[in-house]
Amino acid sequence: MEFLKESVDYAIFGILGIMGFIALWLSIERVIFFAKIEFEEYPTLESFEDSITKHLTTLYIIYSNAPYVGLLGTVIGIMITFYDMGLSGNIDTKGIMTGLSLALKATALGLAVAIPTLIVYNAFYRKVTLLSNLYKTRNSNVKDS
């Protein structure tokens, strides 16, 4: 149990840190990609949409699962707090409150990763819709000419 007590924060924070780093990396990559996009490089709508939606699934997975990873850390932290309370045999309100408040930091970090990723994902999804419509408009104008 001591190993779990000492390693749970590192494991949960490490996983959430990696998720946050990947989300940031992919967000920067998409911003750069959208800034340099050339419609002429894509012969079909399908190839265009495949290209502009790249990495959106990964962002979706991160924003939808980061809160659960944080919640897992919180549940484990609460279990450790109750375990320690049971071993000590006394009810120390200060110790319980401290343990529970420290356990909640994992959920807070999970939300801190998920919320910005959700915002970025929705912004990119809107950009994809706009670019897809623009591609369709440009190609219909070319065919009409």
Rank of each mutant, 00 (worst) to 15 (best):
E2T: 10
L4H: 01
K5R: 09
E6T: 05
S7H: 13
S7N: 14
S7C: 03
D9R: 11
D9T: 11
A11D: 01
A11C: 12
I12D: 03
F13G: 07
G14S: 07
L16Y: 04
L16C: 09
L16I: 06
G17S: 14
M19W: 07
G20S: 14
G20N: 11
G20Q: 10
I22H: 06
I22N: 10
A23M: 10
A23R: 03
A23W: 05
L24C: 13
L26Q: 11
L26M: 10
S27N: 03
I32C: 00
I37R: 11
I37L: 15
E38K: 14
F39Q: 06
E40W: 06
E40R: 13
Y42D: 02
P43N: 13
T44F: 02
T44L: 05
E46C: 00
E46D: 06
S47F: 10
F48E: 07
E49N: 06
D50C: 01
S51V: 04
S51M: 08
I52A: 02
T53F: 01
T53N: 15
K54S: 08
L56M: 12
L56Q: 08
T57Q: 10
T58W: 02
T58A: 05
L59D: 00
L59Q: 00
L59M: 05
Y60P: 00
Y60W: 08
Y63V: 00
Y63K: 05
Y63F: 15
N65L: 14
N65F: 14
N65G: 08
Y68P: 04
Y68V: 03
V69S: 02
G70T: 00
L71Y: 11
L71W: 08
L72C: 06
L72E: 00
L72W: 00
T74Y: 13
T74G: 04
I78R: 12
T81P: 12
F82E: 05
Y83F: 14
D84T: 04
D84C: 11
M85K: 02
S88T: 12
G89L: 06
T93A: 14
T98H: 08
T98A: 09
G99R: 01
G99Q: 01
S101C: 02
L104Q: 11
K105N: 09
A106Y: 03
A106R: 03
A106S: 13
A106W: 08
T107A: 10
A108T: 10
L109H: 02
G110K: 04
G110R: 01
A112I: 07
A112K: 01
A112P: 05
V113M: 07
V113E: 10
V113L: 12
V113T: 11
A114V: 03
I115N: 09
I115F: 13
L118N: 03
V120F: 15
V120R: 07
V120P: 02
Y121D: 10
N122G: 07
N122Y: 10
N122C: 09
A123N: 10
A123T: 06
F124P: 04
F124H: 07
Y125W: 11
K127C: 01
V128I: 09
V128Y: 11
T129M: 03
L131K: 09
L131R: 01
L134R: 13
L134G: 11
Y135C: 04
K136M: 13
R138Q: 15
N139V: 06
N139A: 08
S140Q: 15
D144K: 15
S145G: 13
